[in-house]
Computed example of a mutant assay.
Amino acid sequence: MNTVVSEGIVNLYNEMNDLVNKSGMYLNLEDDNGCLYFNVWNTHTWGEYTLYYFPVKFVEELNPTLRRIVITFYHDFMKENGITTINDEADMDWAIDMLTEGCYEDEDAKERRAREKLVKSYKDGRAYKLLDRVWRKSYYKNLPKAIEEYECKNGFEQGLIELLRRGLEFIKTEKAIMYYGYDPFYDEEPDYLPMTLEQQIRVVYDSDDIMTEHLIDFYNSSRQESYDIIPASTFAVSPKTDKVFTLEDTYPERFFKWADDFIHYIR
Rank of each mutant, 00 (worst) to 15 (best):
residue 26 Y to A: 11
residue 229 I to R: 04
residue 164 L to M: 02
residue 233 S to V: 03
residue 262 F to Q: 06
residue 53 Y to E: 05
residue 170 F to P: 01
residue 179 Y to Q: 14
residue 108 D to G: 15
residue 212 T to A: 05
residue 24 G to C: 06
residue 114 A to S: 12
residue 74 Y to G: 01
residue 149 E to P: 05
residue 262 F to K: 09
residue 171 I to V: 10
residue 131 L to K: 03
residue 116 E to I: 04
residue 131 L to I: 03
residue 216 I to H: 02
residue 115 R to I: 02
residue 221 S to C: 14
residue 6 S to V: 03
residue 80 E to R: 08
residue 238 S to Y: 11
residue 60 E to H: 08
residue 259 A to L: 00
residue 3 T to G: 04
residue 217 D to F: 07
residue 208 D to G: 08
residue 37 Y to C: 05
residue 59 V to K: 00
residue 93 D to W: 10
residue 163 L to T: 04
residue 182 Y to H: 00
residue 29 L to V: 07
residue 127 A to C: 01
residue 207 S to H: 10
residue 74 Y to W: 02
residue 70 V to A: 09
residue 123 K to I: 12
residue 201 I to P: 01
residue 141 K to Y: 00
residue 118 L to E: 10
residue 95 A to D: 01
residue 245 F to P: 01
residue 248 E to A: 13
residue 166 R to H: 09
residue 114 A to M: 11
residue 73 F to C: 04
residue 144 P to I: 06
residue 216 I to W: 04
residue 13 Y to I: 06
residue 165 R to S: 13
residue 66 L to Y: 00
residue 144 P to W: 05
residue 14 N to T: 11
residue 196 T to Q: 14
residue 206 D to G: 04
residue 182 Y to S: 01
residue 264 H to I: 13
residue 231 P to E: 05
residue 158 Q to L: 12
residue 72 T to C: 03
residue 139 Y to H: 02
residue 67 R to I: 00
residue 213 E to K: 15
residue 140 Y to R: 04
residue 70 V to Q: 03
residue 220 N to V: 10
residue 212 T to I: 08
residue 11 N to Q: 15
residue 40 V to S: 11
residue 241 T to W: 06
residue 188 E to K: 11
residue 63 N to Q: 06
residue 147 I to P: 08
residue 132 D to G: 14
residue 255 F to L: 06
residue 63 N to C: 08
residue 61 E to Q: 06
residue 8 G to H: 10
residue 37 Y to L: 07
residue 34 G to A: 15
residue 198 E to V: 10
residue 46 W to T: 15
residue 173 T to L: 04
residue 150 Y to E: 02
residue 253 E to C: 01
residue 64 P to H: 05
residue 60 E to W: 11
residue 57 K to M: 05
residue 240 K to A: 14
residue 267 R to K: 13
residue 182 Y to I: 00
residue 257 K to Q: 13
residue 265 Y to G: 12
residue 162 E to L: 12
residue 21 N to I: 10
residue 261 D to P: 01
residue 262 F to N: 08
residue 136 R to V: 11
residue 230 I to T: 13
residue 91 D to K: 07
residue 17 N to D: 15
residue 181 G to Y: 10
residue 230 I to H: 06
residue 242 D to C: 09
residue 22 K to W: 14
